[in-house]
Design a protein around this nucleic acid. Sequence first.
DNA 1: TTCGTTTTCTTGACTGGTTCAAGAAAACCC
DNA 2: GGGTTTTCTTGAACCAGTCAAGAAAACGAA
Lengths: 144, 144
Amino acid sequence: MTPGPRELLKDAGLRITAPRLAVLEWLAGHPHATADQVTEGVRGKLGTVSTQAVYDVLNACSRTGLLRRIEPAGHPARYETRIGDNHHHLVCRRCGRTEDVDCVHGAAPCLEPSDAAGFVVDEAEVLFWGLCSDCRTSEKEQPA
Amino acid sequence: MTPGPRELLKDAGLRITAPRLAVLEWLAGHPHATADQVTEGVRGKLGTVSTQAVYDVLNACSRTGLLRRIEPAGHPARYETRIGDNHHHLVCRRCGRTEDVDCVHGAAPCLEPSDAAGFVVDEAEVLFWGLCSDCRTSEKEQPA
DNA sequence: TTCGTTTTCTTGACTGGTTCAAGAAAACCC
DNA sequence: GGGTTTTCTTGAACCAGTCAAGAAAACGAA
């Protein structure tokens, strides 16, 4: 079975604290949430948690690989617990809604640059930009 | 021959002004520059230009397709005049240096999402993250 | 050319997501 | 349980980029 948040934190060498458990648990059920949404969700579980604590948790977990952070240009960052398979993302230009897309070319890592220009590449990020169905509807009614 | 900035602006229906010409000319010789660098470069040509004017030019030209804007997470946006072929980019995590990479899978558009989840996709963005040669060297001397 | 309209430029204030800083509180290890 | 280390709270700060109002230019027709 998949390890729970408690084990994940321990294995990553991070202390086990209420805010961390709450963030990981909440995010598992709400992928692609923003820091703001996470804060709200976690407050619903724990009562009071500072904004800073949420950012610290998100950063610590992103750094250690427990969370993946997606930062679509022009939108606040989003976080997800699905890690380890390099899947990609669909992002709505208008509302920022983000959805998973499985890798187009089989297994990870699905892309290699044709010429790395002296760079040591460690990640290939693929973002598909467009409009989600909701925003397409509302755009007809009320053009941007 | 490739059209000059003057023609490009005209064809795009944009007025021809000194700041616009200067931005396009300067960017043609300095791809992947930040707004800040563009401002400096343009001031070298024209003397005084407001920051706002530069942003306006960059935005107007991006909107009309004369410029392409790349917004790597955690770094200021970069602009380039190479447009129309969907090439990709290498980005240095440390210094933000950005380089072109030709499309890995032949001609544009080289990528389609496997499942669009109701989105209407208009662009596939590919970013290769890593460390440029300079930053690799300096990282050994002075680890982050 | 000149006028009137429309767009763009200048100046200066402001925003929003995120980070920094100091100290208080909690988790870990023996 | 005590000491150390890490994390949390509070509140200020950051920065790329945007908004707003008015002055100044570019265009198009006469």
